[in-house]
Simulated assay, not measured.
Amino acid sequence: MARQMPKAISLTEAAAARMKEIMAASDGKYIGVRIGVKNGGCAGMEYTMEYAEAANPLDEVVEDRDVRILIDPKAILFLLGTEMDYEEDKFASGFRFNNPNQTDACGCGESVTIVPATA
C-alpha cells in the first residue's frame, strides 16, 4: 500500500474564503492561484502568488477547501507543511504563510529565510 503524501500547502477557512472571493471576481478566467518562492529581500527569499490561467506540466496541484492551488515545482520542498492564512486588521490585510521550514524573517515581513523540508 502506498503512503499518502502530505499536501504541500493547506488553507485556513479565512484564506479559502478570500481565495474564493478573488476567483469569483475573475469571471472564470483563472483556474487557481500559483504559489512559489523566489530569491529576494533582505532575508533571502520571498513568497510569490499569481493567477494561473492553466497548470504547467510540473505544477503540484493542491485542492483544499474547494480552492485550487498550483505549486511551482521549484518551491515544493520549501513549502511542505505550510498553512496559508488570511488576516485583516485595522491597518492591513493579506495572506500569511505559516511555514515550518521558515527559519527567519526580515523586520518588515516582506522576505524570509526558508530551508528545504527534510524527509
Rank of each mutant, 00 (worst) to 15 (best):
V33N: 07
I71P: 03
Q102Y: 06
T118K: 08
L79F: 09
E13T: 10
V33I: 15
I9C: 01
M23T: 09
I22V: 14
P73R: 13
E60S: 11
R68G: 02
A52K: 03
A24Y: 08
N39H: 12
A105H: 05
K38H: 11
V67K: 05
K74D: 15
L70C: 04
G109A: 08
A117G: 03
A75C: 14
D104V: 11
Y86N: 02
A8Q: 02
N98F: 12
K7I: 02
N101P: 03
G94P: 09
A8W: 00
L11E: 01
D27V: 07
L70K: 00
C42H: 14
A92F: 10
R34V: 00
D59K: 14
P57Y: 03
T82D: 07
P57H: 06
M23V: 08
T82G: 10
A24R: 12
M45I: 07
L79E: 04
A2T: 10
R96F: 05
A117L: 01
L77I: 05
G109W: 07
D89G: 15
Q102E: 11
A54Y: 13
V67M: 04
Y47G: 00
P100G: 06
L11H: 04
I114R: 00
A119S: 15
G107F: 13
A15H: 00
T12H: 00
Q102L: 12
G32H: 01
E50H: 06
A75M: 11
V61L: 08
D59S: 11
V67W: 03
M23N: 10
K74F: 14
R34N: 00
R65P: 12
G81D: 05
E83Y: 02
E53H: 12
L77C: 05
Y30T: 10
A119Y: 09
V61T: 10
K90T: 09
K7W: 01
K38P: 07
F95V: 02
L77Q: 04
A54H: 15
Y86C: 01
P57E: 10
V62H: 00
T12G: 00
I35F: 11
M23A: 11
I9A: 01
Y51F: 15
L80I: 12
F97S: 00
D72W: 02
K38S: 10
P100Y: 04
N99W: 04
V67T: 02
A54N: 12
C42N: 15
E50M: 04
S26Q: 15
I31Q: 05
A24H: 08
C106T: 01
I114V: 08
C108K: 13
L77D: 06
I69Y: 05
I9N: 00
M49F: 06
A24S: 12
M5I: 08
N39Q: 14
A2L: 10
E53I: 09
F78I: 02
A43D: 04
N99V: 07
P6R: 07
S111N: 03
I31P: 04
D59F: 10
G107L: 13
D59E: 12
P116Y: 08
A25N: 15
V33Q: 14
A75F: 05
T82H: 08
G44I: 01
V37W: 02
P57F: 05
L80G: 03
A24P: 04
L79V: 10
I9F: 04
E60N: 13
K74A: 15
V37C: 13
G28S: 12
E60L: 14
Y86I: 04
C108I: 14
S111G: 03
Q4R: 11
K7Q: 08
P116G: 11
T103A: 13
